[in-house]
Each structure stands twice: as C-alpha cells, then as structure tokens.
Amino acid sequence: MKIEVTRSTCVGAGQCVLVADDLFDQDDDGLVVLIEEDPGEDRVESARLAASLCPARAIQVRE
C-alpha cells in the first residue's frame, strides 16, 4: 500500500489525524504531513478511512 497526499488541496481539517495519528500529522499551518508513506497492511483500513473522510479529498491510497 502507498499513501499520497496533495498538500495543495488540503484544507487543514485534521480529519486524517483524528482517524490515524500514526499515519498523518499537521504542520503549523494545519496542512497535512505524511508520517508513514508505506505502512503495513494492518493499517490499510485506517488509511482508507482517513482518505474517505478527508473533506478536501487530499489523500490517495494505492494498493
């Protein structure tokens, strides 16, 4: 699995951090920072949930 974030679309909602703070963080402007680009399969579920709840759809999860 590979996670990609598009910082130019991120609106700093922090939804991703609320769902998976082991995968995502926010910088001082609130923009998403990817902590783990290629996490193990056990975290696919939470990565997908973060992606599907990101209001700006700034997170892509690829198998």
């Binding site: 909602a13 922090g14 951090v17 609320l18 926010q26 001082d28 402007d29 609130g30 923009l31």
Partner: peptide, 13 residues
C-alpha cells in the same frame, strides 16, 4: 488556528 481546532474538535466528536 487549524491545530487547536482539530484538538478541540476531537473532543466534540
């Protein structure tokens, strides 16, 4: 204030 917003929002949710 995105970061404080997120922290407080977690409590709200």
């Amino acid at each position: 204030m995105p970061k404080p917003f997120r922290t407080h929002r977690a409590a709200l949710l």
